[in-house]
């Protein structure tokens, strides 16, 4: 019986690690995709968009599989709800990364030169929050004491992202370079979309700090 439990646990540990890897990758592809778009590298952007679409459905499948196994083998009955909630919200991050690149692909916003660096910086900061929140999630599974450390980093990068977002929007609306009001609104829309990734990452981090308190022995 112990061997049975152990092998199932190990398998699931691998599944969870694999899922978390995909969330980090999604954050990185998202960042690369935004960069490629802003720099006008159309082909590279479309490649990134394709990659993140595949990754999104892949992550969905793994998450469903984990959920199924957790219930079938009656594992971690105490923290099962928390773990599934955590994985679901992490999956939301992947979803939103994919959605943003999709919007870029469909709406093909025209990014003026003076906003490019802000867009790139915003995508980097958002990607950073994803990276840190995944580290927090890994700590939740293995080293509960470290969760708050990573959660703090998520808060920090999210706050930075907020600042860049605000700067970007102000620049867009104060600029004479952008003529049409609709164009300004379009820039605001994409700034908010990219920053939304860091907002979701922050809400996952909030959840994690509560779970971590609950899990303390």
């Amino acid at each position: 019986m112990p061997k049975f439990f152990n092998s199932k646990s190990k398998q699931l540990e691998g599944d969870i690690d694999g899922f978390l890897d995909r969330v980090t990758t999604a954050g990185l592809i998202f960042q690369e995709g935004v960069k490629a778009y802003v720099k006008g590298k159309k082909d590279k952007f479309e490649k990134n968009f394709k990659e993140i679409t595949d990754l999104e459905s892949d992550a969905d499948n793994i998450r469903r599989d984990i959920k199924h196994k957790l219930y079938t083998y009656m594992l971690i009955p105490e923290s099962r709800g928390d773990v599934l909630g955590l994985l679901e919200t992490l999956d939301d991050i992947v979803d939103i990364c994919e959605k943003v690149l999709e919007q870029f692909s469909i709406e093909t916003p025209e990014i003026p030169e003076f906003l490019k660096s802000d867009f790139i910086e915003l995508s980097e900061l958002s990607s950073k929050t994803v990276e840190e929140v995944v580290k927090a999630a890994r700590a939740f599974f293995r080293e509960i004491g470290m969760v708050s450390n990573y959660v703090n980093k998520v808060h920090f990068y999210e706050h930075e992202a907020d600042n860049v977002e605000e700067h970007l929007k102000r620049s867009a609306f104060n600029s004479d370079e952008i003529q049409r009001f609709s164009h300004k609104v379009h820039m605001r829309y994409f700034a908010e979309k990219i920053a939304a990734v860091s907002d979701v990452a922050e809400s996952v981090a909030e959840r994690l700090s509560v779970y971590a308190i609950k899990r303390r022995i």
Binding site: K8, S9, K10, I16, I76, F141, R142, R215
Partner: peptide, 22 residues
């Protein structure tokens, strides 16, 4: 003692669960 062991060993939640069952 157990708290210290669990904290130091960095054991995965799932494995901790299966060890706890045993």
């Amino acid at each position: 003692i157990i708290k210290r062991i669990v904290e130091r060993s960095k054991i995965h939640l799932l494995r901790l669960d299966s060890y706890t069952r045993i």
